[in-house]
Design a protein around this nucleic acid. Sequence first.
DNA 1: ATTAATTTTTAGGTTTGTCTAAAAATTTGA
DNA 2: TCAAATTTTTAGACAAACCTAAAAATTAAT
Lengths: 218, 218
Amino acid sequence: MTSFTEENYLKIIYMLTEQNGGSEVSTNELAEHTQTKAASVSDMLRKLAEKNLINYRKYQGVTLTKEGQHIALSVIRKHRLWEVFLVEKLGFGWDEIHDIAEQLEHIDSKELTEKLDKFLGNPQFDPHGDPIPDAKGKMPSMSSHKLSEIAVDQTVVMVGVTVHSPAFLQHLDKNNITLGCSIRIQEVSEFDKSFTIILNNTQSVFVSNEVAKNLLVK
Amino acid sequence: MTSFTEENYLKIIYMLTEQNGGSEVSTNELAEHTQTKAASVSDMLRKLAEKNLINYRKYQGVTLTKEGQHIALSVIRKHRLWEVFLVEKLGFGWDEIHDIAEQLEHIDSKELTEKLDKFLGNPQFDPHGDPIPDAKGKMPSMSSHKLSEIAVDQTVVMVGVTVHSPAFLQHLDKNNITLGCSIRIQEVSEFDKSFTIILNNTQSVFVSNEVAKNLLVK
DNA sequence: ATTAATTTTTAGGTTTGTCTAAAAATTTGA
DNA sequence: TCAAATTTTTAGACAAACCTAAAAATTAAT
């Protein structure tokens, strides 16, 4: 059996490994993301290694084993499916759902997950544009770019965000930037790399470079 | 804060108090229902009493305080709302939902509970006919009788069950006895108090007294 | 009304997941 | 390259929720 806490570690290791481009995750990195101390992380890593859920060489950081990856993907699948439910069915905003999904992701019932998936119409992406792994752990793929890397006059579609903080998401709401909206780049400032964009062919909106770096488009 | 485990104790105390007609719940009773030993229950009762969630006089059993009752009702509300969701929206059978709802009832978000309630159309009763308390803890009332106490030739409506075991519920399914169906009592056996009933004015079905005692009708 | 049986509580331990402080290993940089 | 800084691990403790065994209180029965 895998406890609530163990599942959280595996999920975080998975996500940080992705962010690191596949290389080992360090103890300190994990301590930050689990809101605990490095000593506690060391304890847990020893335990997860004993259960063969992670590859652990002391002082060298960790990666997930096949089995650890499988559990992590199942937790991520549940998290993202519940986020779709919260937004599509219950009417939550995309800035309100993270903490609730953090709880729901640990509900243990394969039948529930699969019925929920079907009820939601087998969505491929969650309300932030993150891919939802299927029951076998396969991620739908989608090539995307940061808005900050797109050239003037191009027209693209908003497909995701790389930051999920309520403050960032609310900022996008305030500027009518939503998943699926069309974006034409009207102007990029030489000075601060900020963007002036045309939203849905109608509205002109100002986007700082800080924001543009965290918007994924296609 | 109230832990998962504490919430479970409060919920079970609430239900056993109801069953006992309002009188104190004993340590042994709680041990049975929490699947733990009496010694563990004693520990927890001391703790819950310290938090003013129960009235506890050593050796005399316990009742809930106002605050304890409030938490218990909130857990029961969530349990029953999620059961409605599982059956009405996801297509689970009424015999499959208990264990999943036992997990979902501890998800901590008032906004979620209220949006779920609205999404489900503010249901008053769950798929077993149990009343769903409102956000303030008020139970909808419904007078009902055991089928075993109804006289020959009467026609009634099935409104609930007093046992939730999968075996019992599956037995009802097999005999087409569902919530809301109409039941006319054709015959009651002198010998074993078993019933022959007419379901929905069409089908004749045999019902043992053991089953009739656990069917609520109106 | 005592003794016997039952129930409940206390005492002392275990496991899980956390902590602080200190020791050990690794990395940095002069 | 080797000493200083940083990171990681170990050691020893703690709280929550459970356990077993034994003591204390209550209830039942002769």
